[in-house]
Design a protein around this nucleic acid. Structure first.
Lengths: 229, 229
DNA sequence: GGCAAGCCGTACCGTACGTTACGGTTCGGC
DNA sequence: GCCGAACCGTAACGTACGGTACGGCTTGCC
């Protein structure tokens, strides 16, 4: 059987939620992993020849499976996206400590993601792609990055509001505030080639700081200050 | 006389402060404007032939003036950067109203910049470039964007701290918080091809919100000493 | 006028790379 | 053992584009 062909021209934001990249042979996954590794190492100029050589497959096979270069790129990005899908957080019994921990966890995870070589490479190629007419890759990356994060975080925020720990009018706006406090200038600096290695400790500190700032802005407790707790 | 050649391989962050792109003929500026327009319209695949045709000049001239394609790109980016250089804000008599107005102004200006077609196109090409070995463009964009903003905003923040209106330990950290509150997810979404047109009104609202949030975090509230933190 | 410099337009060259074609090999089904 | 399908490796093709060369035109200077 031959795999899917990945040629649908999906409009932005039309990716349903769970996408279609699951009918993949083990061999195909291996090929995509090779392409991914090459993408991280070499940047956008991964050539079909290079992928074929790295994956020890023929170019004919690449074209049969993925249609053309864009199809291969899209499949690679979706394959990576399918690997990082995580279990949603359950709205269990919530107190300030667990809410803080959840937020810090989200912040820390997100910082780790956007500072990883893989994410940087993928975002770079998607940004380039978005500049060149066809918007597919940018939509995929956005959907599996920023929008997936929102979808996982918003239930936590709303649970916090229900239990009276948080106070905000619009969950989307609150999420974007949190996003800004966490990411700040990190992603754009990394994409533009700034060194800026985030150590584990720095990420932890930033996650805690962002969480405290968010709680200072949207925590419901009256009379609180950002520095205590 | 022939202009500069733009071939220096400057290391990241080594751009002094005011760069060298001022010895330009009117004709050269016109050519760079044409390249800039083409970059905005066509994305990264502006070819030397296209620039020559658009600018009504010969390719030979392009190569003589700018060395090679990268030189042209770099000159174009620096040319655009030199156009947006603004007068620094003076640390005049500062009260809460004028500080708030200044911050809102910075926020609004910055949102306008990063949502402009020109900025998006320039950042896209710089991000692509940063992925392909040579980091020059990314450094230039960073230096004239995010770092230039910091250099202009920090004196305002520090003046606010001196007059007791603001309370923060590190100006750099405070700036990055402000940056995050203003930009949030806007830039990455635009770079990845998300529509998201910011109207004048929306920008104004966002600037005011970000400013209020920043003041909530770092404003010296009555009943709180400027020295604790 | 004569001359040199700068520049335009265009033709040209070399190469990289996407895409296709094809011979050879492996493997499952009969 | 035989057949066809899938696939590997490699060669070949077409094109787009970076870079160069050159003839002709304008301009300023003597």
């Amino acid at each position: 059987m031959d795999g899917p062909t990945f040629r649908e021209k999906s409009v932005l934001h039309s990716v349903p939620d769970i996408d279609t990249s699951e009918a993949l042979t083990e061999r195909q996954k291996a090929v995509l992993d090779a392409a991914l590794r090459l993408l991280v190492e070499e940047g956008d100029q991964l050539t079909m020849t290079a992928v074929a050589r790295r994956a020890s497959c023929s170019k004919e096979t690449l074209y049969k499976w993925f249609g053309d270069r864009d199809g291969l790129l899209t499949a690679t990005v979706q394959w990576q996206a399918s690997k990082v899908r995580v279990a949603p957080v359950d709205g269990k019994g919530l107190d300030l400590a667990s809410l803080t921990a959840s937020l810090e966890r989200f912040a820390s995870d997100w910082l780790k993601v956007i500072s990883s070589d893989t994410s940087i490479a993928l975002n770079r190629v998607a940004v380039s792609h978005a500049g060149s007419g066809k918007d597919n890759l940018g939509a995929v990356v956005l959907e599996n990055g920023r929008f997936a994060l929102a979808k996982r975080l918003k239930p936590v925020l709303e649970a916090g509001r229900r239990t009276g720990l948080l106070d905000f009018a619009d969950a989307e706006t609150a999420f974007r505030t949190f996003f800004g406090l966490v990411a700040r200038d990190v992603q754009i600096r990394l994409l533009l080639g700034d060194r800026l290695e985030l150590t584990e400790a720095a990420i932890g500190g930033d996650a805690a700081r962002a969480t405290q700032q968010f709680l200072a802005l949207h925590g419901a407790k009256p009379g609180r200050k950002a520095s205590d707790s």
